[in-house]
Design a protein around this nucleic acid. Structure first.
Length: 601
RNA sequence: GGAGCUGUCGUCUAGCGGUUUAGGACACGUGCCUGUCACGCACGAGGUCGCGGGUUCGAAUCCCGUCAGCUCCGCCA
């Protein structure tokens, strides 16, 4: 991290605590920081002084400086202090190899207490064991811990590397409105009432999407933002209502131009932040490959264990469920596991349960014994031919275990994908030290929304259909593929982007298909459709989730660990107690009337 | 909207129907201590057992509700 403390020299201090070296012995220094532990030996007091750079041991000795020693009796944990003193090498038997500055200490000649501190609500050295609620309530203390300092600084390094890389690749940073217009489709908006425009509302941006595109229309060629985005949806460990994207847009580009640039950006970030080499180009999977082989559109490819299709082996099967599924256009898919001893009967029951919970009718398992005989609830229904074909097709060996799901393509893949991840974790197939980047591309342009009975954009409504499949747009929209791409890191969706539509006719057709009322569309984002009629270049872009990226690079479990002031699962900030009620005057000025909450609701 | 887990001094926790006046450790306070670095020693203070209701002779403990935190499903173009 910080190698040179020169820039940190101020009227109050000459050096940083963590950077002091034995070579500087006998030098006089002024240091500032917080009191860690104080160890009072009666006639000798040791104090750990901490700033963001590290810790140094202070020694207060009455025979060296009486006044400083007397005041040192007063100081307590987390007092903010300043000291003057001499750097001393420690004698061999008192060296502490556990800290970076353990071979030296400061003989203190003068102590100034900037500010006392209440007893801190928890021990800063023991952050891991403290309840997150307490840490969030006292976030200002939590942020003092080495862990949070590291996390926030790690994220800063990514931001710095990204800005640096993008600037030197011709991108400029352009701000776009935070007070924007409610967007078509997508997540719920956070609304902001307008005092000057009664009964009208701004929306906080879910992303700067339309502005990014318009800046392309306007000829800026390449722009980026570290964009704050706001979505009023339920939270998860990797989802906050406000988050940051490394968001960029480029003109006159095709898919490969964007993905290649992102590969270089990521390689650069990995090198700057973690000093790790990253091989490019990244692996690529089409959406269909990803779904059928890994049962997910964000597969964890750190371990193999692919899903296999065995539909063909059961074309003429006497097993009723297989026959029925195949007849109705479904598939039979399986996971082949090396050693059935890894799984108890209870595990198998659990697998069946998981399959049912996720929409499959069930799950069949087959254990292969020493003689390549089948042990399974379905064994007696399988013909000898089917058994031998299974053995040869899957190259079955004794002790193998097969988990079979026969269902609709999506359901079978989804269920086996979930099991694949569970089993990967259980058998520790995942190499946790790996950073495994992967592109998933060739997504369907639309998906069918079962609840609302209409087509929905899989990415967003401005995504360009692929040239090869755009012809299906009227006869079979679900066959249309989009020019879009997701970047996956260790089974997490790190980001996604697309080449955008730059033709008003096509854009209008897509909106029609999405059942967007054209009048309403014009009301909502007519400015955008209008702009599209004035010479729009081919363009595209991508957004990477900065918080997620930082979380993954830091090996952390939640993005709250890389956000200085995050919100809880109910979108509440415990420290500031936000959101909160506002005064009647404020509401009146905004022409808003609060409605009593019905306790029955 | 739904499912699961959790809630006991400041913090981490023990206790899970009656030896409880709720125990311990750390932190905190007072005193002692010249080489500690998880300093040590002695003494001390500190608890609406998340909240409300119920069962019971008796509830931190069992039941119901509720609130909060976390994880997940739905949701997140």
């Amino acid at each position: 991290m910080i190698k040179n403390d020169e820039v940190f020299r101020t009227a109050y201090r000459s050096n940083l605590c963590g950077l002091l070296k034995a070579e500087d012995a006998d030098k006089k220094v002024m240091l500032c920081g917080w009191v860690g532990k104080r160890r009072d030996h009666g006639k000798l007091i040791f104090v750990d002084l901490r700033d963001f750079s590290g810790v140094i041991q202070l020694v207060f000795d009455p025979s060296f400086a009486k006044d400083a020693y007397e005041s040192a009796k007063e100081i307590r944990t987390e007092y903010a202090i300043q000291i003057e003193g001499i750097i001393k090498p420690r004698s061999d038997e008192t060296v502490n190899n556990d800290i970076a500055t353990g071979n030296i200490e400061i003989s203190v000649s003068k102590l100034v207490i900037f500010n006392t501190s209440k007893t801190p609500p928890f021990n800063l050295d023991d952050r891991e064991s403290i309840d997150e609620f307490t840490r969030l309530r006292y976030r200002f203390i939590d942020l003092r811990t080495a862990e949070m300092q590291d996390n926030i600084r790690l994220k800063n390094k990514i931001m710095y590397a990204a800005r640096n890389f993008l600037q030197s690749n011709g991108f400029i940073e352009v701000e776009t409105p935070i007070l924007g217009k409610s967007t078509p489709e997508g997540a719920r908006d956070f609304l902001v009432p307008s005092r000057l425009n009664p009964n009208k509302f701004y929306a906080l941006p879910q992303s700067p999407q339309l502005f990014k595109q318009i800046l392309m229309f306007s000829g800026f060629d390449r722009i980026f933002q570290l964009a704050r985005c706001f979505r009023d949806e339920d939270l998860r460990a990797d989802r906050q209502p406000e988050f940051t994207q490394i968001d960029l847009e480029m003109s006159f580009v095709r898919q490969e131009d964007v993905t290649t640039l992102i590969e270089m950006l990521i390689r650069d970030i990995m090198k700057t932040v973690l000093d790790k080499e990253t091989e490019i180009p990244f692996k690529k999977l089409t959406w269909e490959e990803s779904m059928s082989q890994y049962g997910s559109d964000k597969p964890d490819t750190r371990f193999e264990l692919k899903i296999k299709d065995i539909s063909d082996l059961f074309k003429n099967s006497g097993v009723k469920i297989f026959k029925d599924v195949l007849q109705s256009g479904g598939v039979i898919k399986c996971l082949l596991l090396e050693n059935s001893d890894d799984f108890s009967r209870k595990d198998l029951d659990q697998f069946v349960e998981t399959a049912r919970k996720n929409g499959a009718g069930g799950l069949l398992w087959i254990k292969i014994d020493e003689n390549l005989d089948f042990q399974s609830p379905v064994a007696k229904f399988l013909s000898e031919k089917e058994k031998s074909e299974l053995v040869s097709h899957l190259s079955l060996k004794p002790k193998n275990l097969i988990l079979i799901v026969s269902d609709r393509f999506e359901t079978a893949c989804l269920v086996l994908g979930i099991l694949r991840n569970q089993i990967g974790r259980k058998l520790k197939l995942v190499n946790e030290d790996l950073f495994d980047f992967l592109w998933v591309y060739d997504f369907p342009l639309f998906e069918w929304d079962q609840k609302e009975k209409k087509y929905k954009s899989m990415h967003h409504p401005f995504t360009k259909p692929s040239e090869e499949t755009v012809k299906y747009i009227d006869e079979d929209p679900l066959k249309v593929k989009s020019v879009s791409y997701d970047i996956i890191l260790n089974g997490n969706e790190l980001g996604g982007g697309s080449i955008r539509i730059n033709n008003i006719d096509l854009q209008t057709r897509i909106l029609k298909l999405l059942n967007v009322d054209l009048e309403k569309a014009k009301e909502n984002f007519g400015f955008f459709l209008n702009a599209m009629e004035y010479g729009t270049p081919p363009h595209g872009g991508i957004a990477l989730g900065l918080d997620r990226f930082a979380m993954l690079l830091g090996g952390l479990k939640s993005i709250r660990e890389v956000i200085a002031f995050p919100k809880t699962q109910s979108a509440f900030d415990i420290m500031t107690e936000t959101p909160s009620v506002v005064s009647a005057e404020q509401l009146k000025e905004l022409h808003i009337k609060a409605v009593e909450i019905d306790p029955e609701q």
